[in-house]
Amino acid sequence: MKRSLLSPLLAGLLLLTGCSQPAAQAGGGGGTIDAINHTKWAINHFSVDNQSGIDIIGPFQGGGGGCCYSVPARWTPGMTVRIDWESGEASTEGFPGFADSKKYREWRDKMKENDRQHSKTVPVPDYNGQDVCGITVHFLPCDDVKVTTSCWSPRNANYPIKEPIRMKEPRVCPK
């Protein structure tokens, strides 16, 4: 009788512990969702395939840290991710403080006038034969984005995205 009770309990425990294992251990690669902002705008929030990147990212900064992002064990041609984000005013110019709530709300509403929603589906570069460390989203001028699954630091010469951190937005963006 003890053995018949132990087997279902053991099976249930194994199923539950299997659910908590990161997808990366299933043969793909995984890590955090990070971002680098190459623009003068703040990134108020962002997501990759509807999974939050967590952080607000200021102009010309990095951030993110959403957990956890994984990719399939093998890259296939045509693989894409959908990036959704909101950009907005990065300046605190004219901030009246919180003491006068009416002035604060007016200032906040003025800042929110610059908030813009974006969505873009972008290709995932070939990562076959490479270590994969989550995904890093690069926010570029003209509402463009690039992604990489590289484990290299952006400061390393082997890092695949070479755009400078401080990029100027052209007067007219290509369509």
Results as ranks from 00 to 15, higher is better:
residue 39 T to P: 02
residue 39 T to N: 01
residue 41 W to K: 05
residue 42 A to K: 10
residue 43 I to V: 08
residue 45 H to M: 15
residue 47 S to V: 03
residue 47 S to R: 11
residue 48 V to K: 01
residue 49 D to S: 00
residue 49 D to K: 03
residue 50 N to L: 10
residue 51 Q to K: 08
residue 51 Q to T: 15
residue 52 S to G: 07
residue 53 G to T: 03
residue 54 I to N: 08
residue 56 I to G: 05
residue 59 P to F: 09
residue 62 G to K: 01
residue 63 G to I: 05
residue 63 G to Y: 07
residue 65 G to L: 10
residue 65 G to R: 02
residue 70 S to G: 09
residue 70 S to I: 03
residue 72 P to G: 15
residue 74 R to S: 11
residue 75 W to G: 00
residue 76 T to C: 07
residue 77 P to C: 09
residue 77 P to S: 14
residue 78 G to N: 06
residue 79 M to W: 03
residue 81 V to C: 00
residue 84 D to E: 12
residue 85 W to C: 03
residue 86 E to Y: 03
residue 87 S to L: 04
residue 88 G to H: 01
residue 89 E to D: 15
residue 92 T to I: 14
residue 92 T to Q: 14
residue 96 P to A: 03
residue 98 F to P: 00
residue 100 D to S: 05
residue 100 D to H: 03
residue 100 D to P: 07
residue 103 K to Q: 13
residue 104 Y to P: 08
residue 105 R to C: 08
residue 106 E to S: 11
residue 106 E to F: 02
residue 108 R to I: 13
residue 110 K to F: 13
residue 110 K to I: 04
residue 110 K to E: 13
residue 110 K to P: 01
residue 111 M to K: 14
residue 112 K to D: 12
residue 113 E to K: 15
residue 114 N to D: 12
residue 115 D to G: 03
residue 115 D to S: 14
residue 116 R to P: 03
residue 116 R to Y: 02
residue 117 Q to I: 13
residue 121 T to S: 15
residue 121 T to K: 07
residue 122 V to Q: 10
residue 122 V to M: 10
